[in-house]
Design a protein around this nucleic acid. Sequence first.
DNA 1: TTCAATACCATGCGCCGGTATGTATTATGC
DNA 2: GCATAATACATACCGGCGCATGGTATTGAA
Lengths: 134, 134
Amino acid sequence: MRRYVLCIEAQSIVSSVEPFRLVLMQSSFLNGTVELLLMAVIADGPNYGYEITQAVLARSGGRFDLKEGSLYPALHRLEREKLLESYWTEHDGRRRKYYKVTAVGRKTLAARRSEWQTFAEGVKGVLGLEGGPA
Amino acid sequence: MRRYVLCIEAQSIVSSVEPFRLVLMQSSFLNGTVELLLMAVIADGPNYGYEITQAVLARSGGRFDLKEGSLYPALHRLEREKLLESYWTEHDGRRRKYYKVTAVGRKTLAARRSEWQTFAEGVKGVLGLEGGPA
DNA sequence: TTCAATACCATGCGCCGGTATGTATTATGC
DNA sequence: GCATAATACATACCGGCGCATGGTATTGAA
């Protein structure tokens, strides 16, 4: 069974109604791109888990609401692969684990970024949209 | 371990060298899009497995070289979901299974197409590229 | 005092694309 | 004439990864 989630594009909505989910988005599209999104956000400055999800949410126009079950394993993978480094801080009694992009990570990010563009062009080409392969 | 494949953008290359593979593409990007690509191709006219892969290959600018292990299960899934219908034909002694898009399939395709565009905009937004969310 | 938000983590499920393999026919190359 | 490639279908297994779930702990608002 395929799962869909609905987006409510309003910041003022009461929080009892699920805010900010993918806009009728087939969530499986995200597969393989989550790490790219995380790297892109962290590359703009060291950041920690919760704030990263907020940044992804904002920068995607409210489209991507990463769950902890996607976020933390992905961060751990990236750290294991030496693309990210982490350090702990204390802030108002709350411990935070900040991540930053390593030198290798930065190169990898640049590569993946262009890979994604190539991929997106390929899809556009098959779909017959503007911006496909020449 | 992440897998990468290399593209050789030449049709004249001898077939002993693997021709036409994804251009340094992280194959996991394809997750969730294969069915969309198949639907898009078949929507332009009934088509059969082998030819569909050739069409996807051509329309993607040589980027997507679907393997049988991806293609046929996907076609079977789509047929099970009533988005595709199939019929057998015989041509030069070779049996072919043609697929065509059902009425429901056409609606689903339209929806998924716009979902993909929304998704792509989201990614662009996070990556800080042109064409992201307003 | 109860709930939401903040902040981290681990585990297990299920989907789905890739590899590998099998079968069969036709076309090509040596 | 025989091997190989291309055409054409199919399935079994593996592995990656997003997500649901559940756990711990602190702060602040209702």
